[in-house]
Design a protein around this nucleic acid. Structure first.
Lengths: 183, 183
DNA sequence: AATCACATGTAAGGTGTTACATGATTAA
DNA sequence: TTAATCATGTAACACCTTACATGTGATT
């Protein structure tokens, strides 16, 4: 039966900032929530239709932007108040490193270098994002900054981990280097 | 068409450590890989069946433990060498904090306290795990330690972030505190 | 004898991803 | 007028989760 979908939360949340088209909801989720949330775009219109049917969303006529109703705001608050669903972890990089003996030290090294580059890229993105958001200064700003800060902390941790692990890797490899594909 | 499943990697990887029953594979994934990987247990037996059919896995008779064939080892290495699939992020806590203005400062505070407690719990678990793994000293140990280290770094980052954000939260709340449910 | 853990599965049904289909509007 | 972007969807299908079904072996 699978976990309950949280697509509604993301869609209602996006519309709580401002009325917008489905297309704009999709872009907001990609560009604004993108660092910690993602949606299948194929789900957005069906979700909007369902929300409209239940009276949480209505369409204003011109250019048909979707708009939250009063019930929609209440519904959003209700959903936000539910305990967050923990998504089961599924980290492909860790899965590979864990079986690093099978994968080989060189490939592990490459994975760690890529993780490091990823973390650095993210840090730069978050710095730019933080500057942009802090400049706005709206009522949602403090909350945006909290999520950006989480990204910064996580990326810094990933960077430190990757560097530390790269330094630790060679110690384990001298014996294996001789027999890369050997059984 | 959805991303390619990596269930095979986890199952083949588990069997690469030692032949074992499907039941044991399931426990290994839960208890050993659990910090960074998870599987639907309903997938494990069908996956094993598929692997057996393609000759990557065979059954030894007694107590029917599943065992990797030579092709199975090769297949595992092949899969490990593929670029890791990034799972789209879906962080329910961040989603709630981002819309914290709708959720209210008190609930945000509760989320952060819970995140902090989670991080502390994880740090304790990782410390115990690290001690246990380091004691073994097998050929897979250095790779296990790398993944555990990632967990430690991440948990420490989460802890620091939660504490920092808890301290930052009150500054944003004095005006909202007067009108908790008001529209 | 009953209970619990081990062991191997199956079934139902929601969820999510990707790719495609279709039209309106704007820009070069 | 061709192309690109905006805009609203639909369809196919793989994936995943949960719950159930069934039997064995050991322990109390």
């Amino acid at each position: 039966m699978a976990r309950r979908s949280q697509t509604e939360v993301a869609v209602l949340g996006a519309l709580s900032v401002a009325p917008m088209t489905g297309y704009a909801v999709r872009e907001a989720i990609r560009d604004v929530l993108g660092h910690f949330w993602s949606e299948s775009f194929g789900q957005i219109y069906p979700t909007l239709a369902g929300l409209e049917e239940r009276g949480y969303v209505r369409r204003a006529d011109r250019a048909a932007p979707f708009e939250l109703t009063g019930e929609g705001v209440a519904r959003l608050r209700e959903l936000l108040a539910e305990p967050p669903q923990r998504v089961p972890p599924r980290n492909g990089v860790m899965l590979r490193l864990f079986f690093g003996r099978q994968l080989g030290p060189e490939a592990c090294r490459a994975l760690l270098l890529e993780a490091k580059a990823d973390a650095e890229r993210q840090l730069a993105e978050f710095a730019a994002l933080r500057a942009a958001v802090a400049g706005e200064g709206g009522p949602d700003t403090p909350y945006s900054l909290i999520t950006i800060s989480a990204g910064v902390h996580t990326a810094r941790a990933a960077l430190a981990w990757a560097e530390e692990s790269l330094a630790a890797l060679p110690e384990a490899t001298p014996s294996e280097l001789e027999q890369p594909g050997a059984d």
